[in-house]
Simulated assay, not measured.
Amino acid sequence: MKYWIKRSVLPFGIVCLMSMALCGCGREKKEAVTVQPELVIGSDDYEPYNYQNENGDYAGVDVELAKEACRRIGYTPVFKQIQWDDKDIYLENGEVDCAWGSFSMDGREDDYIWVGPYMYSREVVMVRTDSDIYKLDDLAGKNVAVQSSTQPERIFLGQDYDIIPKVKNVYSFVEMNELFAALRKGYVDACAGHEIVMREYLRQSGQKYRILDEEIIDSKLGVAFSKNKDTQKAEQLRQAMAEMLEDGTVQCILEKYGMENRVAAGGITP
Rank of each mutant, 00 (worst) to 15 (best):
S226F: 04
D86F: 05
A32G: 12
A242I: 03
R199Y: 10
G94D: 08
A234V: 07
P152H: 08
I82C: 05
T249S: 12
I164N: 03
Q207F: 13
G74W: 05
V144E: 03
V167C: 14
Y51G: 00
N169P: 09
E175N: 15
Y90F: 11
I268F: 01
E31C: 10
N169I: 09
D62R: 02
Y171S: 09
M176G: 06
V250Y: 02
Y201T: 02
S102K: 04
E68F: 05
D106V: 02
D247A: 10
F180S: 05
K256I: 02
P77L: 07
W100D: 00
F173K: 11
L157S: 14
N50V: 07
V35I: 15
L254C: 05
I73H: 08
G266Y: 04
E68C: 05
R7C: 13
E38C: 11
I163S: 15
V124W: 04
V170F: 10
A224T: 06
W114P: 00
S19L: 14
Y134S: 12
G26D: 08
T34F: 14
E54K: 13
I253D: 03
V33A: 11
I217Y: 03
V144W: 02
A32D: 13
D160P: 07
G107I: 03
G107A: 07
C252E: 14
Y3G: 10
G56M: 07
A192N: 06
I5S: 11
V263D: 00
E235G: 07
L221E: 01
C25K: 12
N177S: 15
D110K: 13
S172E: 12
K6R: 15
G158R: 10
P37T: 06
D88G: 10
E235S: 14
F173L: 14
V174Q: 10
C23E: 12
A181Q: 13
E47W: 05
V125H: 04
R27V: 11
V167D: 09
Y118S: 03
L39P: 02
D45R: 06
V125D: 03
V188M: 12
A192I: 00
V61I: 14
R122F: 11
L245F: 06
G24N: 13
I73V: 15
C25I: 12
G186I: 09
R238W: 07
G26E: 05
V197H: 03
F12K: 15
Y257D: 05
K135I: 08
S104F: 01
P11R: 14
K233D: 04
E195D: 14
R238A: 02
I217M: 05
V197W: 01
V174S: 09
G258P: 07
